[in-house]
Design a protein around this nucleic acid. Structure first.
Length: 277
DNA sequence: AAACAGGCCTAAA
DNA sequence: TTTAGGCCTGTT
């Protein structure tokens, strides 16, 4: 990976494994929106940017300082995904999935946002998940002025904690409203300290998250993977279950994919959903 | 129109 | 410990 900076633009070259379309559309996040030419706009906390790829170059509208403080970490740029993909040549299906998903990276997302987002994702489809999260941000997030437009941050737990489920009615999240508020209260009151979960280890983190109502095994694994960067977590949604059923023995354990099983999961999810197999 | 969508919760075997 | 039914809402 090679970096060069101008005033408000970071240019990355010599980095094969960075495809904005796959990163933002592979299902790990819901708030990066493309324009008609494939340029994505989004935020991490209060930091907004546009991101796109032209041939061998990746661009992020960010000065050097913000890139080093925010985006380098957010895009997990110090991890070698090409090397990870090589480790997945252990079986034919996974090899194809990793080739197909080449360019995906696991974002280091905000934990609280990941918790809420995957509560919302349950029994839901992606367009509606996006819509609900966007409404939540517009109604309760903080405005951020960016290139002449107003974007909104993901609302802080403290902001949602005092609300009632009825207050969330305009968000149209249905029966998930009390789940979101429960989670917000747990975080705001300090009962759930997301920052301490990483040190607690996988099992403890998973079980702690599952004490929040509306967070079961699948959602908890998503939070652990996308919010806590435990890349061995392997959330099993219906697509993954289908892929496993069709291509692996019944007693198959994702632990054969090792410490990056979660990355394997993401390649597999993206591949399964693409309908290419 | 009825079923389904990146589950979870509760009650009941 | 596993299984069925219900749940908000929007789309097909």
């Amino acid at each position: 990976m090679k970096l060069s900076f101008t005033d408000n633009l970071t240019e990355i070259t010599e980095l094969e494994d960075f495809d904005p379309v796959k990163i933002f559309e592979c299902g790990q996040c819901f708030r990066w929106i493309p324009d008609e030419s494939g340029v994505y706009t989004g935020l991490f906390r209060k930091h907004a940017a546009r991101v796109w790829r032209e041939g061998e170059k990746v661009f992020i509208t960010s000065d050097k300082e913000t890139f080093e403080a925010v985006w380098r970490d957010y895009f997990d740029l110090d991890r070698d995904y090409a090397e990870i993909r090589r480790m997945f040549s252990i079986d034919d299906y996974m090899k194809k999935a990793a080739e197909f998903g080449k360019g995906i990276r696991i974002l280091r997302q905000d934990r609280w946002e990941a918790l809420c987002s995957f509560i919302i994702s349950q029994c839901n489809n992606i367009p509606r998940i996006r819509k609900i999260i966007e409404a939540l941000c517009q109604l309760h997030g903080e405005p951020v002025e960016f290139e002449g437009k107003t974007l909104f941050t993901f609302p802080a737990a403290e902001k949602l904690a005092p609300l009632s489920p009825e207050d969330l009615a305009p968000v149209r999240c249905g029966y998930r409203a009390p789940y979101i508020i429960d989670a917000a209260r747990a975080v705001a009151e300090g009962r759930l300290d997301l920052d301490k979960l990483t040190a607690a280890g996988y099992e403890t983190a998973l079980n702690t998250l599952k004490t929040i109502s509306g967070v079961g095994d699948k959602v908890a694994n998503c939070i652990v993977l996308f919010g806590l960067q435990m890349l061995d977590a392997f959330p099993k949604d219906v697509w993954i279950k289908r892929a496993l059923r069709g291509n692996y023995p019944k007693d198959f354990s994702p632990s054969v994919f090792g410490q990056y099983a979660g990355v394997a999961q993401q390649y597999m999810f993206y591949y399964a959903r693409s309908g290419q197999n």
